[in-house]
Amino acid sequence: MKSIFLKFALPFFLLLPSAPLLAQEMPDALVKRVTEEVLEIARQDKAIQSGDMKKIIELVDTKVLPHFNFDHMTALAVGRDWNKTTPEQKKSLITQFRLLLVRTYANSLTAYRDQNLRYRPLKMQPEDIETLVRVEILQPGSKPILLSYSLEKQDNGWKVFDVAVAGVSLVSNYRDTFANEIRANGIEGLIKMLAGKNKQLETRQK
């Protein structure tokens, strides 16, 4: 009797201390789970397959975006001028940049949904609070396209703050364009430029 109790209970007790660790999904597992979930839906949903942008954006909005840190992303794209912006300006910039990235993500999802992916092993120390998750898009006859997600550890899980394609950050690729606009027309000019682009995309892809 005692031995049976030990057999079943002991592993359970041993597991207990590690339970809080289990609560937070590992960054590579998170990226894989979200990617597979979204691709599964994109491959099956009839409306999405016929190019219904609204539906795709909805999917990205609900499934993908909760795992992104847009404050950090926008700050990275704006660069040095970020410190000179008021809280209201920051809010508008984040809202507009978020919209732009959602559209970009939705477009790449549509374009690459039939491609095969390969998840590269995670190189990370347990104490790391920042890490890189690498996914490759396989394509016949050429080197796989490397996607690198930069993630940071937060209280509510790991959050993506940068995405690089073939070693180039999609966020910092905006840095020069944004800096030029700020130099010419100030922060308000940049907000207007972002809003204008989003409006244009919205009318073009219903």
Binding site: L100, R103, T104, A106, N107, S108, T110, A111, Y112, A166, G167, V168, S169, L170, N173, D176, T177, M193, K197, L201, Q205
Partner: peptide, 27 residues
Amino acid sequence: QAESVLDAAAFDKYEYIRDLYLRSREA
């Protein structure tokens, strides 16, 4: 495939391609 993504992402296609190219060559 890349083109539709580019169209959504770029403010000025010429500039976006240039910046992307220069950075990707470095990488």
